[in-house]
Every structure is written in C-alpha cells, then in structure tokens.
Design a protein around this nucleic acid. Structure first.
Lengths: 338, 338
DNA sequence: TAACTTGGGGTTATCGGTAACATTATTTAA
DNA sequence: TTAAATAATGTTACCGATAACCCCAAGTTA
C-alpha cells in the first residue's frame, strides 16, 4: 500500500508536508500543495484510518448494535442512524446480536477493540447490564435504543410501550372484545414489561379481569419451532377472541400458528401488534399495529450520541430520555363482535 | 485506555511478554502467564485492534456492502455472510449504498481506508465498474453478489435470473395469461437485463409477440413518487392481465398503485416477482415469487472470499462463479383466466 | 540596522502493538 | 566437563500517521 512516505519521496518533500496537504492544516505554498496532490493522484493514495486513529485517539466511527437484522423495525432504525451519522461526519458500522447475550458480548468486545467513538445499542435485555457496565467503565459513550436496562442510567430513546398497549387493548374492547390474550417478549426486556403493564391497566379500566393463562411470555425473535405457541393456544379456555402481540415477529408467528390450526384472522381471532411489517405491509394492509417511529429511533439516538461524544468533558450533564409516541394504524386484522 | 505497557509495568514484565500471553505465542512460564492474566483482568485490558492491524497488515475484518438494507433479500444475505464470517474467525461490518453510486464510492473509500481484508459487494450496477477497479488496483479481494459488472472479472454469486424469469412467465401462460407486462430494474444492472431476456425468450416460446410498451425499466429501490408507475399502467392498452416484477420492491409498488386505482389483485391483474418478502410473507402467503436463496448468497460468497484471501499469493486461480437455482413458490397472486 | 514576525517547511517522538533478534539461565548431549 | 540446545524473557525497530517543536529566509517595524 502507498503511504505518505511514498508520496513524500516522490514529491521531494517531507511526510509532514504531505500530512498537512491531506488535512489542510498549516501553511503550504500552492506550488507544493499542487505537486503533492498530483503525486497522490498518480499513486492512488488512500489514507490509513487505523494509523490516523491510533495517533488521534479517535476513530470517527459509530457502531450500531441491533438485535434482529431481519426485523424491518431495526433496519429502519439503521437507516435513520445512518443518515444522522453521515450528517455529522461519522461512519456507521452495524452489528447484529440476534437477541443473543453471548453474541452481544462478542460485539461489545469488538467495539471496544476497534475503538469506536460511540455506540448505539438495542440491548438484548436486562442481562445486557454487564456489557453496558463494560462500555461505561471504558468511557465509551452510548445510547440505548428501544429498551432500558435497570441499574444503568444513560441516554435512551424509547417508544411509549405502555400507552401503545393501552391503545391496542382499548381498540379491541371498542370492537367488542373481552377475551383478549397477550403474547409477549421476555419479562427481562423493559419494553415487554411495559407492554404487559399497559395491557393489564387497560383491562382493568375496561373491567376485564386479568387471567395469567391468557399471557404467554416468550422470545421476541423468530423461532423454528411453533409448539410453544401451539400449546398456549390450546391451553386458553375459553379461547380468546383477540390476541395482542408484543412485536411484529410474534404477530406473524401467532397468525401462522392460527392458520395452521384452521383459524381465520380476523373472522375467528383478531390480532394486533407492536411495530409495522415494513414496506411490505402495504401490499395488503392487513395488520392493525402500533407503528413505532423506527427511523426516528435511529436518527434521534445518533444525534444524542454525537452530542454526548462532543461534550465528553462536560461532566454531570443529565441523562436524556426521549419517548416517542405510539401511533396506531387501524387496518383489517380486527373484527367487530356482538 | 489501558495498554500492554500498563499491564507490563504492573506485572513486572516486558510488553513483549504481555503480547505473548495475549496471543499464546512463544514460551512463557505458567507463573508469568498467570500473573499477566490477573493484571489484565484487574485493569480491564482490551486489545487495540487498530494498533494490531497496523503492524500485522491485516485486520480480520470483512465488509459487506449491500444496496438496500430495508430489503429482506439483502438482510437475509447479511445473515448468511455473518454466519460464514464468524465461522472463519472474521468480523463482518456492513454498509448500505442505498442503490446510490455516490454512496457506494464513499463506502469503497472507507473500506480501503479501514484496510478490510476483503469485501462482499452487491454493486449498484454497471456504473460500479470504477469502484471495483479501485478495489482491484489496491489488491483488495472482493466477491460480487447478485449482480455482475461487465468489464470486471471476479468471483461472483448469482441467482439464475434468466431461468427465473422464464419460470414466472411460463407459470402465467399456463394460467392462460397472454398479455404479460414486465416492470424491471435499470438496464444498467446485470440481473435486470437477464430477467428481461428470460421474459422475452419465454414470450417467444409461447408465441406471444414482444411489445416494448409492456416493459417499464425503472429503479429497483423504493420510491416516494408512484407517478412513473401510474403513467405506465395507463399507457398499456389493452391493459395486461399479468405483471412480472423484477424484484420484491417493485412488486409491492405495483400492487399499491393498482390498489390505488381500484384494481384487484389477482382478480383483475395477476402479479409475480423475484425475491420473497421475508418472514412476513407468511402472514398471508400471497405473492407468487421466485424465492432466491438469499442466505446462501451471503454464506457461499463469504466462503469464496475467505478462500481468495487465504490463497492470495496463489496467482492465476480462475474466477469462480456460483449460480444459485431459481425456485418458484406458487401462491395466490395469479388467477387463471379463460 | 537590530529585533521581530511570518511563511513554508523539516525533525523527532508518539499512538499500541508485534516480529526479529538478543540475552541469560538451565538442561541436555557428547 | 564442556559445548550445544532449550526455555523464558528482554530490546529494538517498525507499522502509518500526526502533534509539538525547531529552523531559516524574507519582510516589517522601531
């Protein structure tokens, strides 16, 4: 690879002069500048970011760690983060923890080792605490996305999960539903907890008793084996007339399971969920959802992160918490009963 | 940040000894090794990959550049690449060119500057040639995904676009369709060209004359303005009874447009396309598609790339080309006519 | 005219690691 | 018993870039 020394030699100047030309610092005569530029072109010089970062002690790289790269919610978050990072002159790299605490740990190590200037993390859940503590200990600024982690104060961008759950349940009751089930993510995930809370509160406000059998707490990510969902569906009696899903993945899997057992949605069972299905929901606008502002999660989160990085020394800045509203999109997956 | 020198000082050894412990090289007494390990734990040492890469002249990083991170085809490619990279001990970083030649150029520069060991590129199209030449000139091994670029020989993983298009058209004709339109990506993209070719060949085999008005060549990526598609639909007379879409994004946009104008799919117009819609297609298995093996694109491509990297010096290895089969999934988006 | 700026550079040290080559005990083989 | 081998560690140079400091000539100023 061509280095500034090669350029310097060929242009008959010192490496420092080449560095000055590249970074537009110091005083350089036009003649020298042009000569150096010409040689750089000629030799196809490409700067070495690693060498640069090593001495500057900063990489101009932000890292976005998401939990499911095949989930349109997170890819849209990524688009937002990417745009914001670009706007502020940072490069953005992605990682995908696949909802696995172990892969998350690997990525945290990688992030530290590559000396990213900051990190956007959608944590896998409460068990991410040690990973976040590691980041904090190494003074790497980070912003949490979508999920909080008890025991760790930080900047965070959340959706209004509780309110969203309430809206979904209210919508269902307003359509006459009383037997409303909930399939949710792990209780180790803050947003899942809030969705359960919102669900319970809304039931209470509608004078519907809470029934633990109507709640399944499982994993947010795609699974190959649907038997857990099947046996849950069998267990509920009388069967629910409507199901609230804690995210889009669960909604899809519930609907698949229902279809496999011959139930029709929404004629026999209504289904609603958090998070839209991406552009493809428009092919046949079917699912009634709480459409979280995924792009804004990424965009605003990155903005907060950049602020935090650039004011690094200003200690004692209070942590910021952005809660994005939960907007419901009513489509066809809910039937009116009675 | 803690460095090996800090460790060395505290453990009372030289930096080199610490380096040996970290890399498990050379001979070290158990006593020293344990002492060093303990100090490393105590100080929360994290190696600096940049410093390491700088001296080793390799980064153990692969880069995957895709053109649309919100397209489930590419995110599934990413999952495959990720798994393969991890298996071979490489870290994988992603970039998203958004089908923009300019962003692609930026990413190529970033990739060179970060000294990735190899690159997987889904090129934006034929105009990517100079970018690929840049990579080649700098001797960065790369593998093309999904699209070839005329003028650049390299390893490549493709889908069988021509055969896929033929299958789609044959399926339509077997359902009685004769007026079959095609909405396709830019002719500057090799896979789009092959899909057009396959479409024309299949028409000919079925004794259907080719009509240029039935073909719209536009962009593969999502758009905000549907007017181009609208005016194309209006232009065709008599209107087609079926439309082949060059990818999933176009299929969705065509269907949206049709819906907006009051056409029903498939009752009035049948639609088929390349690439599945991700897990969400299963919510309501609707679109008949050529489901390309996206995961394999990523997995096999990464494998080829790693081979190429590790046999770097073995010159003259012929370029490899993998063509993955095009399997059709018949669902409900095609009606039988006459 | 001596003293001071200023423009346009060059030198040296450093970032955090590792390869290659010492170095010093301790064994082992002859 | 002594040279040769081996184990365990240290020294030095270098990867590619930049900050901090130094240098010198030409132009200004008092």
């Amino acid at each position: 690879m061509v280095t500034i020394y090669d350029i310097a030699a060929k242009a008959g100047v010192s490496a420092m002069t080449v560095s000055r030309v590249i970074n537009n610092t110091g005083k350089i005569s036009d003649k020298t500048r042009n000569k150096v530029r010409r040689v750089m072109e000629e030799l196809n010089y490409v700067p070495n970011h690693m060498a640069r970062s090593l001495v500057l002690q900063q990489s101009n790289v932000l890292f976005l760690l998401i939990t499911d790269i095949t989930n349109p919610f997170y890819t849209t978050v990524a688009r937002g983060a990417e745009d914001a990072a670009r706007k502020h002159g940072y490069r953005l790299l992605f990682g995908n923890s696949d909802e696995s605490v172990e892969k998350e740990k690997d990525y945290i190590d990688t992030i530290l080792a590559t000396r990213a200037d900051g990190v956007l993390v959608a944590p896998t859940g409460d068990l991410s605490l040690p990973h976040l503590e590691t980041l904090r200990r190494h003074r790497v600024p980070f912003v949490l996305l979508d999920r909080e982690v008890p025991g760790m104060d930080s900047d965070v961008v959340l959706g209004d999960s509780k309110e969203g759950a309430r809206k979904l349940v209210d919508h269902l009751t307003s359509c006459g539903h009383r037997r409303i089930a909930l399939i949710n993510g792990s209780p180790l995930i803050s947003s899942a907890r809030l969705r359960l809370e919102g669900y319970r509160e809304a039931l209470k406000l509608n004078d519907i008793p809470f029934d633990q059998n109507y709640v399944l707490e499982t994993a947010f990510e795609p699974r190959s084996d649907l038997s857990e969902i099947e046996s849950w569906l069998d267990r509920m009696s009388p069967p629910p007339t409507a199901i609230v899903a804690g995210n889009n993945v669960l909604a899809v899997e519930v609907i698949r399971t229902l279809h496999a057992r011959g139930f029709r949605v929404p004629e026999q069972v209504s289904v609603v969920c958090f998070d839209d299905l991406g552009p493809y929901s428009e092919i046949d606008p079917f699912l009634t959802v709480i459409a979280q502002q995924a792009y804004q999660f990424g965009y605003l989160g990155t903005q907060m992160l950049v602020d935090r990085i650039q004011e690094r020394d200003v200690t004692g800045l209070p942590w910021k918490k952005i809660v994005l509203p939960a907007d419901m999109i009513v489509r066809r997956s809910v039937s009116t009963i009675k």
